[in-house]
Amino acid sequence: MDFGQLFTNVLNEMTGPTAIAYALAAIGLNIHFGLTGLINMGQAGFMLLGAYGFAVSTIAGAPLWLAFLVAVGAAVLFALLLGIPTLKLRGDYLAIVTIAAAEIVRMVGRSTALTELTGGAEGLTGNSFKSTFQDASPFPDDRWALGPITLATNASNSWWLRIVGWVLVALACLLVWRLVRSPWGRVLRGIREDEDAVRALGKNVYSYKLQALVLGGVFGALGGVVFVLASSVQADSLGRPVTFNTWTILLLGGAATVLGPVLGSLLFWAALVFVRGFLRGAVPTEVLSVQQVEQIGWVLVGLTLVLLIVFRPQGILGDKKELAINAR
């Protein structure tokens, strides 16, 4: 087995757009769940809306900044639409409503009725909406190598996209770091612990939950944009499993920590690619087909999620003491 190639693949995936997109989505989910205690089971819906917002507006001729704005705006609207009616209800309703709403977005997006706008189930090809982003790159069109990784400078899964993506992740972390340590973040954590207590102290819990839902959703949308800038917009590539993976990433890294979602995303993709690559190299194809290796990878993801909750519920960066109190 070629371990050099395997590790190059792992490194490539860890720093790639998928890991970036999931890191952004998990940062958003962290604001929802880690900070505020909102159970958002529809983060993929936010991602998908962001992706559609960006792609559809670009295709319609919007400049890059406007397309980003539309993506963010779509997530804000979605959050308000979901949050205004449901955040007053019991917590588990939000979970059901968000997962249902995300599915609705996906089903409507892939529906034949909207083929003109969204491309139906086939989606929108990357080339139809990537040009404005690629044109904004300061690099010449070329292929550059950095260490073992060689990528195009501008096209699709490019250095340009990676740089922009990681800058976005860094900014998001900075923002969360600032907010967590502010009185605003304190109110959110209070809501996570017991929203009635916070209400009794004169805080408008509803408004704070809505703010958290919107902010986290915006990060989801940005993640969605990064996700599709590397490939194409397809409703089905941002379905329920994406939400579940995001949860795994968040819990792996550690909810309610600033860097947990980023670390989680790096490890998640590294581990997945490593396991697949390793099995592919070590097990002959007659025993396990390539697809079956993929399935094993996903079985492992599921089991990891279970084992995490059982053995290390605070994740890698979380505070064990903090969690022990919750269990009591």
Binding site: S182, P183, R186, V187, R189, E193, D196, V198, G202, K203
Partner: peptide
């Protein structure tokens, strides 16, 4: 309803009114 996973001091601070830092943008 002590907010269990927050420190005693954080609990207290949460009780105060008119905190500009409780606004998302000021924060």
């Amino acid at each position: 309803k002590a907010l269990a996973r927050m420190t005693v001091l954080e609990n207290m601070r949460l009780g105060a009114r008119e905190q500009p830092g409780e606004n998302l943008f000021t924060a």
